[in-house]
Design a protein around this nucleic acid. Sequence first.
DNA 1: AGAATAGTGTCTATCAGACACTATGCA
DNA 2: TGCATAGTGTCTGATAGACACTATTCT
Lengths: 229, 229
Amino acid sequence: MDAYQWPRPAVTVDIVVFTVLDADLKVLLIRRKLPPFEGQLALPGGYVRVSEGPEQRGESVEQAAYRELEEETGLPPKALYLEQLYTYGEPGRDPRMRTVSVAWYALVRPELAPMVLAGTDAAAAEWASLSLGRPPLAFDHDLILEQALERVRGKVDYSDIAFELVPRTFSTSELRTVFEAVKGEVYDAANFRRRFRRLIEDGLVEQAPGHRTTGKRRAAVYRFVKRDG
Amino acid sequence: MDAYQWPRPAVTVDIVVFTVLDADLKVLLIRRKLPPFEGQLALPGGYVRVSEGPEQRGESVEQAAYRELEEETGLPPKALYLEQLYTYGEPGRDPRMRTVSVAWYALVRPELAPMVLAGTDAAAAEWASLSLGRPPLAFDHDLILEQALERVRGKVDYSDIAFELVPRTFSTSELRTVFEAVKGEVYDAANFRRRFRRLIEDGLVEQAPGHRTTGKRRAAVYRFVKRDG
DNA sequence: AGAATAGTGTCTATCAGACACTATGCA
DNA sequence: TGCATAGTGTCTGATAGACACTATTCT
């Protein structure tokens, strides 16, 4: 039995974009201009574009995520770390029609965060803080946001994603601030340093020229060394 | 712009089913009876069933995974641990048409593994060993299998999934065998025991009545204690 | 009785958390 | 010159790996 002709769900992408601004974890939200959920906040996203028949011109699901992000927020693919999160396919999650959404999360360096709003018309996109209460979102986007947070919080400890949330060169206290914002807890500065020193010894991080002064005293800056490069 | 009318991809599920038999990690594969890839091995899976219009009768993506598994292998939903893996949506991954596949992995206890073949007509489903070389699979199923393996290998260390691959009651050496099969390395029996003893102290595992003899000497058996129950 | 497996104890290296401490440079 | 922040050193407890050891029971 070949299901070629059967009804198909619409396939969309939704993206949870995080950044850290003012020592605070933030998500990018869009104010919807059309029903359903008109006027409410939602995650950026949209339909995956495909073509009929076996020629299969059209974008991959990942490309769709990059494209929608650029269209809706002005963020270019190069500026992003993008990773697939989960696929949501409950009937009823979109009141219009049966929709399966492939959700992604993205990380943006703080220097690039301000360019987001410039790329779209005034009031469309905004960085919402996550340390305070959360606004209700359209569709099942609350759930998606929650699971994205869980993923990032878990992964920050054993992977390199924290380096995607600091400037290209950064001080240890800037990196510590990212950890604190993501995990929502305070880290002992001395112990954090020691962990960080191991990263240098292992060659994951190297010192960069110059200094930075965020507090009272200037600090050495470092850069993340990519494994393959 | 509403994409209601635009062409849509077909949406499928594919499931990587693991079990441990004879101290060996195995995957459930299906011999395809229809083109494309006729006669080749593939992961069990199939189309997600939806309905037209806003009424949205139809199954969730997760239900589709359970249903396809039961249809193709005879494994009832109750017998399985099922978790979503990743969604594959590259154009060209199915030569017939544009297809987005939501992949899952499932774990089956060894006692239940034999019932798989009984549920289907003779030569359709088989448990393939993973310690030897792998047969080439249809579509991009090699990739899916590889990523499922990676997920299970990573997760077995910090989660409870190992308990889904032993009988309901088990000896420490049975549990160790599962770890060895999954990770592909030998564990020091004494150190493994010590780790295991901590699980008992923490109440995650409790001793069960009776004994089991897999080797020369009989061993105490335990059962996993669910957190919420 | 022999032998393989179940199960215990011990030593060492590593790492995280707590916290006392020194050093620097901006106000 | 004060003081907040950068950065170092040290103690303690938890845990993993290596490995020597005892205990049990099947054949």
